[in-house]
């Protein structure tokens, strides 16, 4: 981050915030319809990133399509093989299952591709900086911001304006009542998994483009912060998750930029201190879901 040009800081903050907003949204989608904190979301991100790595020599478009496809197929596979059989089980069982799925895929990756980080540069055309108002701003970060805005816009449209979106929102509020009016459980759950897979792939792509590496714990690092963000934002509320993700990502970047150099290594400690304070005063998060109440 070198010098402290405010425009650079702003672009950094917003781009990182946007990535965590998308991460938290991916988690929030699954949580809202299934009440499942899906740890395996991390491996959707990781596997999408490895798909990019595997297709390094290919045209960018191929790599993008492959990573999106990988994450979506993996999301659907985990639903079908691990979560659907447990749908009527209690929440703790589902939580542990998602943890098991996450661990299984992670170890499988380590076993097959090794645990060492591998360099990857999927979007070299976005590497060069451009000048905005005297500041050198990374094109990649601007692209990240645009991609996040586009994803947020598309997701909002889908949830607000389409009938599957309406069904998902109804199921998020009261799954049983939604089924009683005829909403099909499988449709809303599959839609949630497909969308979360898509978001995981977008996050993976933009994240590896910025960091330049893939490794088997890549997704875990991002998604853990995403979980914190959904809790801060308010469990079960999608706008809350997005805002929480943005807040946490932005805060981490700002702390990195603004803390004195000798305190920077403790950035995470400061971040989580703020998180704890938020939860002390707002135990349900900053923007709790209105629908988390008694069901039929």
């Amino acid at each position: 981050m070198g010098n402290l040009n405010p425009i650079q800081i702003l672009v950094d903050t917003v781009s990182v915030g946007g990535l965590y907003a998308l991460t938290a949204l991916g988690l929030g989608l699954i949580f809202s319809v299934m009440r499942l904190a899906n740890f395996a979301h991390a491996e959707l991100v990781t596997c999408a990133a490895y798909a990019v790595f595997a297709l390094s020599g290919q045209p960018v478009a191929v790599a993008i399509v492959a990573s999106v496809g990988t994450a979506m197929v993996l999301a659907l596979a985990t639903e079908r093989l691990a979560f659907r059989p447990l749908r009527s089980a209690d929440q703790t069982t589902m939580l542990i299952a998602s943890f098991a799925v996450s661990m299984f895929i992670q170890k499988l990756l380590i076993f097959t591709v090794g645990s060492r980080p591998k360099p990857v540069d999927p979007l070299p055309i976005l590497a060069q900086p451009i000048a905005i108002a005297g500041a050198q701003v990374s094109l990649l970060k601007l692209a990240t911001i645009l991609a996040c805005i586009a994803c947020l816009g598309a997701l909002t449209y889908l949830l607000r304006r389409t009938s599957i979106g309406l069904h998902m929102r109804a199921a998020a509020e009261d799954f049983t009542m939604a089924q009683l009016v005829g909403v099909r459980a499988n449709s809303v759950i599959l839609a949630a998994f497909v969308l979360s897979g898509f978001l995981a792939a977008v996050v993976a792509l933009l994240f590896v483009a910025q960091t330049g590496f893939v490794h088997p714990r890549l997704g875990v690092q991002i998604v853990l912060v995403g979980f914190v963000a959904t809790v801060i934002g308010g469990l079960g509320s999608l706008p809350g998750a997005a805002a929480g993700g943005f807040l946490v990502g932005a805060l981490a970047t700002l702390l990195q930029a603004l803390l004195p150099a000798e305190l920077r290594p403790f950035r995470e400690a400061f971040l989580f201190l703020i998180v704890i304070l938020v939860l002390l005063f707002r135990p349900n998060g900053l923007w709790p879901a209105p629908g988390l109440k008694e069901r039929v």
């Binding site: 309406l166 929102r169 109804a170 509020e173 009261d174 009542m177 939604a178 009683l180 879901a289 209105p290 629908g291 109440k293 008694e294 069901r295 039929v296």
Partner: peptide, 10 residues
């Protein structure tokens, strides 16, 4: 069902 289960947030 009893208890007026509207989708309160919709």
């Amino acid at each position: 069902p009893e208890g007026r289960h509207v989708f309160a947030g919709l």
